[in-house]
């Protein structure tokens, strides 16, 4: 199975994950380890000065996992650029998952603000990984302004509805010159396998792993699904047909008995 290159960094796992929604830091680490993921997302928030928060940074760094801060919470391009600058300081990485969703109900990414922020962040030297709707035109525009990959959604964040955007993901994958990472909505390992079979370069899965009754086992299931999907893609899938085509040769079986 081939590895994936993003901005000169080589990933052997095509499964990226997040750190949100886990019951504990231990459950999160067990799940990330089972997934084999080498890139995980984190968020940034104003510090609670009265309480100590869980330190999830240390175990991630101890395991050598690359951190991908996101700009979640930003509602405009300006806020997202500020969030990315803060994240670069806090986590000492110039990689950023750019996400701008002003509406908390559906968390739909704002295409106009995202394109403006992407252009500015690329100028400032960031490796920009934009989370967007499965919009082939927008993905092309983001590639043109210098994004190192695109992250179109399968369906709304946390919805577990799978690849509702499949016909548009097919177009994005066919057109893109940068890696395509399907993000959001992937609810089951079969969704992840399908994305990889279609030729997506990777998937990002968080909710489906974190809220499973057994997160570590579900993460292993996702790992296997992503590997199966990629292997199938690289092996070359057969074409779909309307009519049957026999797998066994049509020999004169009955006739041969007489």
């Amino acid at each position: 199975m081939s590895s994936l290159m993003i901005a000169g960094h080589e990933f052997s796992s095509r499964l990226f994950t997040g750190t949100g929604k886990y019951a504990s830091a231990d459950a999160m680490m067990a799940s990330i380890n089972a997934s084999g993921s080498e890139l995980v997302t984190l968020s940034l928030r104003r510090m609670d000065l009265k309480h100590q928060s869980d330190n999830i940074l240390q175990p991630l760094q101890q395991h050598g996992i690359k951190l991908l801060p996101n700009t979640s919470g930003a509602r405009t391009a300006k806020e997202a650029v500020f969030a990315a600058q803060l994240a670069r300081e806090a986590l000492e990485t110039n990689w950023v998952k750019l996400e701008i969703h002003p509406d908390p109900r559906y968390l739909m990414p704002d295409a106009i603000e995202t394109l403006a922020a992407a252009e500015e962040l690329v100028k400032q030297g960031f490796v920009v990984m934009p989370y967007v709707h499965a919009d082939p035109v927008l993905c092309k525009r983001l590639e043109e302004v210098g994004c190192q990959c695109v992250m179109p959604l399968g369906s709304p964040i946390g919805s577990n509805m799978g690849l509702a955007s499949k016909p548009f993901l097919d177009i994005i994958i066919e057109q893109s010159q940068v890696p395509v990472i399907v993000d959001a909505g992937i609810g089951a390992p079969s969704d992840a396998a399908l994305a990889l079979e279609m030729g997506a370069d990777a998937v990002l899965v968080n909710t489906a792993m974190a809220v499973a009754q057994n997160p570590a086992q579900m993460s292993l299931a996702f790992k296997m699904a992503v590997e199966a999907g990629r292997l199938a893609y690289e092996s070359g899938l057969g074409e779909k047909r309307q009519q049957a085509q026999a797998s066994s040769p049509f020999t004169d079986f009955v006739g041969s008995l007489s």
């Binding site: 997040g18 750190t19 949100g20 929604k21 886990y22 999160m28 997302t41 984190l42 968020s43 940034l44 928030r45 104003r46 510090m47 000065l49 928060s53 869980d54 999830i56 940074l57 951190l67 801060p69 996101n70 979640s72 803060l86 994240a87 300081e89 806090a90 986590l91 964040i157 946390g158 990002l204 968080n206 909710t207």
Partner: peptide, 25 residues
């Protein structure tokens, strides 16, 4: 930037914001 934390002077009524990394997808 971290590199100038030790030399950046704070004055009365300044608005300082401190951010931390937390879990997120």
């Amino acid at each position: 930037p971290k590199s100038v934390w030790a030399t950046t002077m704070l004055e009365s009524d300044m608005n300082v914001f401190i951010f931390e990394s937390i879990a997120g997808g």
